[in-house]
Design a protein around this nucleic acid. Structure first.
Length: 446
DNA sequence: GCATGATCATGC
DNA sequence: GCATGATCATGC
């Protein structure tokens, strides 16, 4: 195939790639060779072969070595409120656990391959074949310095865990922007790790979905939200770890009553408004209540506020979105919404009531679910699916059945129902983290 | 006092 | 109108 661009010139490659915008694979590549394809392969490799004219490979080099540019294609989906958003994380190169522990960031396989990305965003549509997906946005991406500092720290977190012989315990929730996501048939592929005999799931470096959305917004000037950043200029310059900065923002207020915190910061928050605690968290972090937290959005960080009773027990369980019975039984654990939700990085803010009803800030900390607890959640999830299939959607796993989580109604009222596979209408339900488990989390962080 | 069921407030 | 995160109500 004739190559229609200078493969050594980054700008020429990007300009050539830009011509994909508004087209489908079919339109962009013409009919040449397309009859041989018949929809086989994946979007990325078809684009490499039939548009850019090179054979897909798994080299350590970027796809355009002379230009240092790595081509990545990634799906978008339509979001009712936000318009087009990333459908998933962006999967980068596979992790070789043995090699990884011998690398430094600057000479790492991750950085050699992915320091400059050429991104092709297409709109995924399950009604279409991939030849007919609309290519929406094309652009090149280099990581700004402030993001790179976070990504380097993430990379170090991953390497450290592997050096500790814990590659099998890696989780996406370990890190902020750069994740180690499972890759391969249902996460079933196992690989050797250098400092343990336990086989670890095959994983790849990946950019969190939130970070991909950030890239998309930057390339399109899109995104209507206002953002505030936690990291201020001098902290960025000094490369202070994000986690440390967040902890330092909260520490001065430990032990203080909420109204006193509001007074000390001098902000105008109504403590009776339902979003009060969410706003207070932002204000403590130095962010306006009407702004999104830049670093947390990029890192898919989930904020949860927890009130502890005077005896130290969590006052409430923590809910996740209601599921649909018929959809749940079609999923596998590895592709389940619950696993996706539980593997996120959480930011917990704990308040505690004293005996006279005053509420005091106790602790704020990042947390992600340990692997062994995720296995407990898996059991509950599997049992839930099993009972729904048996027509027992009325009696799903209770709090007393598992240490970590349970299933409970989560609806507008008792008439707010979903249909089960056998045609019953049962009140909408969701998974909840047990309040006793939340107390465990609090204890582990103190 | 807690587990379980039920429902609310908010934002889009 | 609904999803989401949060909280209330009741009975044992």
């Amino acid at each position: 195939m004739e190559v229609l661009y200078n493969k050594k010139d980054k700008h020429a490659i990007v300009a050539f790639a830009k011509r994909l915008e508004g087209k489908t694979l079919w339109q962009a590549c013409g009919t040449v060779g397309m009859h041989q394809i018949g929809g086989k392969g994946n979007f990325g490799s078809l684009l490499e072969k039939h548009y850019f004219g090179y054979e897909p490979n798994s080299d350590a080099q970027p796809d355009f070595p002379e230009a240092g540019l790595e081509l990545k294609t990634t799906p978008l989906k339509k979001h009712a409120k936000a318009g087009l958003v990333s459908k998933e994380r962006l999967v980068l190169n596979l992790i070789n656990y043995v090699q990884l522990t011998k690398e430094t960031f600057a000479d790492s396989s991750f950085w050699k391959k992915n320091s400059q990305l050429l991104l092709v965003f297409y709109l995924h549509d399950k009604e279409k074949t991939l030849l007919d997906y609309d290519i929406k946005v094309v652009g090149s991406w280099e990581f700004p310095e402030e993001d790179l500092a976070v990504i380097k720290a993430d990379w170090e977190t991953i390497v450290t865990k592997v050096r500790q012989g814990k590659a099998h315990e890696l989780s996406e929730g370990d890190t902020f922007y750069l994740g180690a996501c499972t890759k391969g048939a249902k996460g079933g592929n196992r690989r050797q790790q250098p400092f343990s005999h336990i086989q670890a799931k095959q994983r790849a470096f990946s950019l969190k979905q939130g970070y991909v959305n950030h890239i998309l917004h930057r390339l399109t000037q899109g995104g209507r939200e206002r953002y505030g950043t936690i990291l201020k200029t001098q902290e960025r310059t000094a490369s202070v770890p994000l986690e440390e900065v967040v902890m330092e923002r909260f520490r001065p207020f430990y032990g203080m009553e909420v109204e006193a915190i509001v007074r000390q910061i001098g902000c105008d928050l109504n403590s009776r408004a339902k979003g009060f605690y969410a706003s207070l968290t932002k204000v403590v972090l130095g962010i306006q209540p009407d702004e999104q937290i830049d670093e947390f959005e990029k890192g898919d960080v989930v904020i949860r506020t927890v009130r502890l009773k005077p005896n130290g027990n969590a006052a409430e369980d923590i809910s996740f979105p209601a599921f649909r019975y018929k959809e749940l039984v079609e999923q596998s654990w590895d592709t389940s919404d619950l696993k996706e939700d539980l593997e996120k990085k959480f930011f917990f803010v704990f308040y505690k009531y004293d005996s006279s009803g005053g509420l005091y800030l106790q602790k704020a900390a990042f947390w992600n679910m340990p692997y062994t607890d995720l296995e407990e959640a898996r059991k509950v999830w599997l049992e839930t699916v099993r009972r729904i299939r048996r027509g027992q959607a009325h009696t799903l796993p209770k709090k007393s059945e598992n240490r970590v989580c349970h299933v409970r109604p989560h609806a507008r009222n008792s008439h707010d129902t979903n249909e089960t596979p056998d045609g019953q209408l049962v009140v909408k339900k969701s998974f909840w983290l047990n309040n006793s488990y939340i107390k465990e989390i609090y204890t582990s962080l103190s």
